[in-house]
Design a protein around this nucleic acid. Sequence first.
RNA 1: GGCUCGUUGGUCAAGCUGGUUAAGACGCAGCCCUCUCAAGGCUGAAUCAUGGGUUCGAGUCCCGUACGGGCUACCA
Length: 486
Amino acid sequence: MSDTMVVTRFAPSPTGFMHVGNLRTALYSYLIAKHSGGKFILRIEDTDQERFVEGATEVILNTLRMTGLQYDEGPDVGGPNGPYIQSQRKEIYQKYAKWLVDHDYAYYCFCSEERLRSLHDENGIGGYDRHCRNLPKEEIEAHLKNGDPYVIRQKMPLTGTTTYFDEVYGEQSVENKELQDQILMKADGYPTYNFAHIVDDHLMGVNYVVRGNEYITSTPKYVLLYDAFGWERPHYVHLPLLCGKNPDGSVSKLSKRHGAVSFEELVKQGYLPDAIVNYLAFLGWAPKDSTQEIFSLEELVKVFTIDGIGKSNAVFDYEKLKWFNAEYLKKLNPEDFFERIRPIWAAAGMPAYVNQKKLAGLVQSRVSTLNESADIVDFVLSRLPYDAELYTNKKNKTTPELCLQILKTVRPALDAAPAWENDALFELLQQTAADLGVKKNAVMWAVRIAIARKAVTPGGATELMEVLGREESLSRMDQAIRELEA
RNA sequence: GGCUCGUUGGUCAAGCUGGUUAAGACGCAGCCCUCUCAAGGCUGAAUCAUGGGUUCGAGUCCCGUACGGGCUACCA
């Protein structure tokens, strides 16, 4: 292990929901820190006052809690480098901005918004013309004394190149003349992301900056700031982006039109936090020397390394997420699974006579999300409409007529059932089939359709009879016989 | 437009310093199992964007082209 501890952070802006792309960034930051026994910090970046959303920080805290990404320092747990909410650190940024101005790395800009807008073309493209870069001292003093609104801009070098090393993408370098004199402090006294995160990362000891690759081209500007302050530059780990597939086959940055993209939404749809985390880990990363895919958070911490991170953007695939979720659902012990779907069934109106525990057992290996557990048992929740067609089955050679005959034989035999339990019922029906001289499968088909009225059900005829209970099963069967006779 | 990053099957991807029958997973198809359907087991179809180099030999190195992403905000 190196002598300096790895310190990473997750620094979301409170938007009101947790985009899975953001969650994945948080995950990777956490894993990189914890893999080497380092520290993981949470910092809220709320410097955009116009975008303030009530309760948004709670969403972030809650997501991290549910996914198990425990941070060592953060707004609600404190730490030696707080506060961890940027809006509470205004004076700090102002102090450092002032230092930059005093040392000629930044300057006051008094340009009006109208003037700035006029610099842009119809697409909003076009940089600042550095109008205020070399204002005479007296003019600056006058503006300041006059209380004119101003911003502070970074004074980029006009020549040369800036180079930095990215842990994923390798060496990156740009011509300094391409760099904009970006705004560090806004007119409202708040810093921009471009400035605040640098000051905070340094002050908080963050030495591994993990974020989306949309920052790859602006990082030279950040590196210049570190250099200006004389601070040690952090390691940079830029991550490939998460994309979604469009109807026409093209891909673009993952957004709402691709489906559920927030953690909360996925959970609401019946995905388990652990499964979501596991899937996200594999979007842009793969373990070395292993084809294993199911990993707990603790296991991920052990195997996660930066050199396993890919460079190209990944498409978010809901089918694969479903598979992960189904795997996690199957791994749950039966009681656990039952407890999770019980409220869903209750809300759907599960009848009291149903043996829910048994039903849950039948459902567990047949759903890929919690919510599906209600759809898949619709025929239990209420009696589905009669459909004579279902009694006809080519493979088992059944027809409505044959089924009626079978049911009329089965029904009285059932009265003699020793116990209303799967094995006994199975044996009984098997015996009836033998007595009748028809295949067992034909009997099973007739009975199952009679009580479920559905071609595809979780579990077979006798299992469903057990789940429905004696009374309901017989009642359904009686009804089926009446309908077939009509 | 400028700058920049990327490109292995439909999707996630392994393939690190050039020689592989180019892993594995999801999905898809088929078979087995089976009281329907799942689960489980087995099999299969499907990929190195493209054109030039370098080399005895390139998915792996170099250049161009195409396509895609990102940045170019008093958003992060």
